[in-house]
Design a protein around this nucleic acid. Structure first.
Lengths: 186, 186
DNA sequence: AGTTAAACATACAGACTTGTCTGTTTTTGT
DNA sequence: ACAAAAACAGACAAGTCTGTATGTTTAACT
């Protein structure tokens, strides 16, 4: 197991801190200390704290989507995959003590000029939306329009389950959302 | 129109800043400057910044719930009131440029020890949940259990619509959530 | 082996943070 | 009018923050 490079160590450490402690609660000095990196080295790789957050979110997007798709891959039908998405939420969020969605968390209390971070959140949510749509488009008893509409409804349920389980620090919102999703999918 | 007292001026100013600019982005000095209050006076009324936020959330809860109930009061049936709740979201959120939910926004990036704020969020969300349940309990074709379950599903839709409309800065999630709510309410 | 690049440590600037403290002025109640 | 309470102004503490600058040491490549 070889040691990570400086850039990767920064991103890994920052990811952990940004997600678990929050963006505003995490300082540059804490990141370089825990990553074991000199401040000058850090500013060689990233122009600003915001840029580190963008790298964090980009990496998180890749792994989050990939984990989701892996989780539901053993389901046969697309409807079953979508239902299983709520089980993914459960598995994921209970393992992080209901810390919620990294994108939701970072954009709700952000300095005004941090548009690059906001853009990452929009990209992430759109990708999830597109993935849900694509699964429903292949269901042959749905028109394209119905697939879009139904997919959007499922996306709302996913978002609501995440934020409410975070506030309540409990899994019931996820179970409720799954039940509602089943109803909507008939 | 008589001038507000010091305490009220602090809460009003802080409410505006906390909601529109964010809790972490708002400093004590900005609050006292804009409220036109001396710092010593402020600390006579509030022990800490967190306590100001608690006062903000308590006041916001009163007015938010009251606005919601006023908005749906002209609807006849409880089912219609619940559907109209999504129109309330639309009216409210479009008027604040989709700035989202004050409680969601403040708890997602909060210092570790700010439990009083977190408690306010739980209280607020529980009150909304109870209100939804109470409306459905009076519907005579639903058992108590069905009313609870259906109510929770609606609550998830409300939460999801708020956070997603905030990220997308668009009202489509609210319309989608309303449509899903109609389906679930049959 | 020698050159170039990367990472190191650390001091510093400059601004900001919450909260305390001192002392003066204004308002309020009697 | 007089005493008590409230609000005022503002300095200050002690720490935080991001980002820059300087110079040294290690690693990589030819």
């Amino acid at each position: 197991m070889k040691k990570l490079g400086v850039k990767d160590r920064i991103i890994e450490t920052a990811s952990d801190l940004f997600y678990n402690n929050g963006y505003n609660q995490t300082g540059i000095n804490q990141i370089i200390d825990e990553a074991g990196v000199a401040k000058a080295s850090m500013y060689m790789h990233f122009r600003s704290k915001e840029d580190i957050a963008v790298a964090y979110l980009k990496r998180r997007h890749i792994s989050w989507v990939s984990d989701l798709q892996d989780f539901v891959s053993n389901q046969i039908t697309n409807r079953e995959k979508l239902i299983a998405s709520f089980d993914y939420l459960d598995s994921w969020l209970s393992s992080v003590n209901y810390r919620g969605c990294g994108w939701q968390n970072i954009i709700t209390d952000l300095p005004h000029d941090h548009d690059k971070i906001r853009d990452q959140a929009v990209l992430h949510k759109n990708d999830v939306r597109v993935w849900v749509h694509s699964l429903l488009k292949d269901e042959d008893n749905l028109s394209d329009n119905e697939a879009m509409q139904l997919g959007d409804e499922l996306v709302i349920l996913l978002e609501g389950a995440i934020i409410l389980s975070q506030i309540q620090k409990n899994k019931w919102p996820i179970e409720v959302a799954k039940r509602a999703a089943k109803k909507l999918l008939k």
